[in-house]
Design a protein around this nucleic acid. Structure first.
Lengths: 185, 185, 185, 185
DNA sequence: GATGAATGAGGTTTCATTCAT
DNA sequence: CATGAATGAAACCTCATTCAT
């Protein structure tokens, strides 16, 4: 039931937004009553936190696997881009909620999530700077800015990319890796 | 007064979000009463639409100037990236509201704004495809995906870039143009 | 202009009701501004009072002419019924407003209008009792109840009678006079 | 509680009118809060519809019993008049609300109520035309107009008749039946 | 585990009215 | 005569949350 509430909430939050989705909407979609909701969650905000953690913890874990592998930095980068893009198909709604609704977490929870988010970014930055040090990537790059750029490319995809549309996630990941590595000139 | 309400609203919407900002918040910040708000705007949504149009219309106009210039496609692209990044300094709050709160427009207004947003994207796509045709850019690129990627890089900057921080907007635009054109390898 | 405001208001009050018609509605329909309204009327209620008096004073005056005539009581009654029914064509909207919106007059004005309304009723009652005394009408009738009944028949017509429809006001007045005088058996 | 809200609302609507009675007025009179109101009714208008249906459905049902009886048409008419007049004592406030506030129903609900109201009128018309056909009533009458007249007499009574005053409902019903059947001459 | 009645704070919006110009 | 900006009270309604059962 707890999982059911969470899944349903994610879909509703994605479609209508966190503030615009009422507890009533959620329990009605599941055919239960508000009391049930408050049996499993102490507040709407706690549910949102649950969704956030589910998303970012999973992502961090899979990032770590790539990080700890013996691959080249270039390959690691490609894997990470693929990870983020293919995730849209599997956890698109979660991701959208994650990117859009963090503002509604309370101070304390926001800090915790932000820290994990930053950790993810720093890990990506690490790949860049390692790659530069090991001469896989060009010298003179600003790793932090590059990391932001890569996240921009992938995260923005949540806004428009439809995995069931004309182009596959693998293909899109390929295009983006190529762009990041080689540019357009 | 109308301008004052709009400016104040943009700041509040950016800080707290559209749904979380009440008319009361807005008028209190200005030292007027709710009646005054509704004298100038027929609804909260209309105010949001006003903000959206103010942002996208201005952007489209400036994009057109670049498009109609005699510059090379490469140079046009650089100008466009610079335009978008430096805009964060000038219209950062407007932009954030624009990217985050479109969901709160009514159907009719959403369609209008989406059309303009798409027009902007298509114009960018045009630069890419022209550049490919004229051999300024590599062959085999997918202009639409590249356009989305570029928008991802620039738009995402609204989320983190602080123009008054350590790096200037011009500098960041340079880094991003370089990345897009040449990649990191 | 004052007359224009009054006429327009009557139409709007009839269509939408007094409470549901705003000053804004009235002045917009006339292409002027609220200031203009308050130049001619001190309040919305005063306008309503104006409408009420315009209606009832006119009716009382015409009733008096009938009353003072040399006609038989039976003929007087027929004339009065005709007066009330044909009035629907000429002053239908005014009448509807009169019957429906008295509640919105302030205490003081309500008293004044009620007094005139009662006067009208008493005059009608007089015709009945005179008619009984002079053996034009049956003995044993209760003049007050009969007067209420006649007013019910005529006033209710405001609710459904469309003078431009299938039956003329004169014809309807004839039918009603016949009913009242002779019954249906 | 739902019944309590409805009863209280009827009294308030009768006294002050629908538009002039706020939800606040209703719940204050009951010593509950606004939330409670909206737990039982989705809107003020829905409450009004509830009141309307409660009134007209009951009336239609009782009318049908008379209609289906083996009484003469003359007797049926007398019963119906008695039904309507005695109803003032039992459901006077409901009736007043019914007659005065239909305008505040939304289009859809208004249509439904109007249809039932018309059905009641058509049933009455039927008694008249049957009575004419069976020579209980005079030939040459216009059943539709007579029906309107009878409704006028009875409905108007809601405006002035006080069942606890000098004359009883039964007595008034008798007077009105006599008037309708025999006229005043 | 789950229900359903109740709360109360807060939201958007409307509107009669005022008044300096 | 007429305008238009501003007010402030009050309206309807929503909703996260609580709690006895």
């Amino acid at each position: 039931m707890k999982q059911g509430i969470k899944q349903q909430s994610i879909l509703l939050f994605e479609k209508k937004g966190f503030s615009e989705t009422s507890i009533q909407d959620i329990v009605e979609a599941l055919g239960v009553t508000k009391g049930t909701f408050y049996y499993y969650f102490t507040s709407k905000e706690q549910l949102l936190m649950d969704i956030h953690l589910g998303y970012i913890d999973d992502l961090l874990e899979r990032q770590q696997k790539i990080q700890q592998s013996q691959l080249s930095n270039r390959k690691k980068l490609e894997e990470l881009v693929a990870l983020l893009i293919t995730d849209i198909a599997n956890h698109g709604p979660s991701g959208k909620v994650f990117f859009r609704e963090m503002r509604h977490l309370c101070e304390e929870n926001a800090v915790e999530v932000k820290a994990k988010r930053e950790k993810f970014r720093k890990n990506l930055e690490r790949i860049i700077s390692d790659g530069i040090a090991e001469h896989e990537f060009r010298q003179g790059l600003e790793p932090e800015m590059i990391a932001f750029a890569i996240l921009g490319v992938t995260n923005w995809s949540y806004q428009w990319f439809n995995p069931t549309g004309g182009i596959s996630a693998d293909r899109l990941a390929g295009i983006y890796s190529d762009l990041i590595l080689n540019g357009i000139v």
